[in-house]
Amino acid sequence: MRKPDLAAVIAERADLTKDKAGEVLNVLLDQITQTVARKESVTLVGFGTFEARSRAKRKGKNPQTGQEIEIPASNTVAFKAGKALKDSVN
């Protein structure tokens, strides 16, 4: 499912226009993005938690040459599924 498909489902279920549902979806995603960028977590009970995590620098190998390289430290986003989401998948 892509973003426009999700907006269409929201529009149908919430009795909104597709444009308004798309706007709501964009605001939701923007707010999650801004909150995680501030290193705060976003928890949607029953769905899951989005949070920022730091990765330490580490050693790796260039797959083409086999040469050992150092991968710099970086930040990433993690998602931990909630119980209800896990149960629905299983």
Rank of each mutant, 00 (worst) to 15 (best):
R2K: 13
N26K: 14
N62H: 04
F47W: 11
I71F: 07
A37N: 12
E23D: 14
V45T: 14
I10A: 07
E23I: 00
K18A: 04
N62Q: 04
K57E: 15
L6C: 01
L44Y: 03
S74A: 15
T65L: 10
T35D: 00
L25G: 06
K20R: 14
V89W: 04
A84P: 00
T49S: 12
D15T: 08
F47R: 06
G66Y: 11
I32L: 05
G82K: 05
A8G: 11
K20P: 01
Q34F: 11
V36S: 08
T17F: 07
S74L: 02
I32H: 04
V27K: 06
K83P: 01
I69P: 10
D30C: 11
S74W: 06
I10S: 06
V36E: 09
S54L: 10
T76F: 09
E51L: 14
G48L: 07
T43H: 10
K80M: 00
E23A: 15
G48N: 05
D87K: 12
S54P: 03
Q31C: 10
K80H: 07
A21L: 02
K61H: 15
I69Q: 07
V24P: 03
L85A: 02
N75L: 11
A14I: 08
A8T: 11
L6W: 00
V45H: 08
D15G: 04
Q67C: 00
K80C: 02
G82P: 05
Q34T: 12
F50D: 06
A7K: 04
D5C: 00
T49W: 07
F79D: 06
F50G: 07
V27Y: 05
K80W: 01
G46S: 03
Q31M: 09
T17Y: 04
T43I: 03
R58V: 10
K57W: 10
L28A: 14
Q34N: 14
F79A: 06
T76A: 13
A81I: 05
K59C: 07
L25H: 09
A7I: 00
E70K: 08
I71W: 10
E23M: 11
Q31F: 01
A81K: 06
K61E: 12
A21V: 01
A73N: 08
V27M: 05
E70W: 08
K57S: 15
I32K: 03
K59G: 14
S74D: 04
K83T: 11
V24M: 12
E23K: 14
E68F: 05
T49H: 10
N75C: 06
Q64I: 01
K80E: 00
G48K: 06
I32V: 15
V77Y: 12
D19G: 09
A37I: 12
K61P: 09
K39A: 15
P4Q: 02
Q64H: 11
M1E: 03
S41P: 09
K20G: 02
G60K: 08
A81M: 10
V89P: 00
T43L: 12
R55W: 09
R55N: 14
L44A: 02
A37V: 13
A73D: 07
L85F: 15
R55V: 04
E51W: 08
G22T: 04
K59T: 15
K59P: 10
K83G: 03
E68V: 13
K18S: 00
G60Y: 08
N90Y: 00
P4L: 02
T35R: 05
A14R: 11
A7S: 13
I32F: 03
A7D: 03
R38G: 15
T65Q: 10
A78D: 09
E40D: 15
A84S: 12
